[in-house]
Amino acid sequence: MTNVGWWCSAQTGPWSWTPQFYPGIWAAMIALLVGYVYAIRRIGPAKVAAGEPVVTRSQVTSFATGYVLLWIATDWPLGVLGAGYLLTAHMIQYILYSLIVAPLLIRGTPPWMRELVWGAPGMGWARYLVDRPFLAFVAFNAVLAVTHLPFVADTLKPIQFGSMAMDVLWLMAGLIFWSAIGAFDQEGDMSTANARRLVYVLGITVLPTIPGAFFVFSEFPLYTTFEFATRAFSDLSAKDDQVIAGLLMWMGTMPILMARLAMAFFAWSATESRRAGQI
């Protein structure tokens, strides 16, 4: 195991399967776990009514799954491959952060803990977005668009701080986006809320197709980072890697979003049925 930095970033050398240790990632992951456990043990009991569980088993399972996937997405090897060798790995990271890890972490966080996080000092801006789904939607898509601009990605990826900033941005945008879904529940009419939730989730199936199309149909590699990287797999050219990443952006996100969409649709359908029954 070698140590090449504190956070995964684009490297100039050839790709190696020798494990690399990134202390910054380990520190962040341990801090997240310690924070979660501390909140459940020390803060939670005072936040819930007597007899109510501080956290449910399903929430812990969801958080644990999200936590493991977050570590996999961030650390070696996927983190290093995505930072500087393969656009496909970068895309897998993005999908994991935004569409899988973020909703799992949100689902694994009890409501009182979510209040605690969004209400923490310095998190006012995030709270503002979480309470306004439309703005959360715009922010989520803005992060997707901006972090995939070649100039931005090629500038940030070789720098450890830049690479970390991209990871944090993706995760934060995902957390805010999936948290904001809860804001629909505050609407009085559940039928309207569910319909809006449906449109909200449907909306993010559209935008990824734009960079995806650029990846697939571009004549040449878009990112210098991946164009000048030594090939991690000798049979996979930078162009082919880009096409796979584009297809992944189209196809890979679809099953996840469709599942979420189906959940929103059935919730809306159930509300409508109940309302019809009442009439």
Partner: peptide, 18 residues
């Protein structure tokens, strides 16, 4: 060569391919 040679040649090959 771990870096420059394969990258140079891969990029020329891809350019010619297009």
């Amino acid at each position: 060569c771990p870096d420059i040679c394969p990258v140079h040649l891969a990029n020329i090959a891809s350019a010619l391919d297009q």
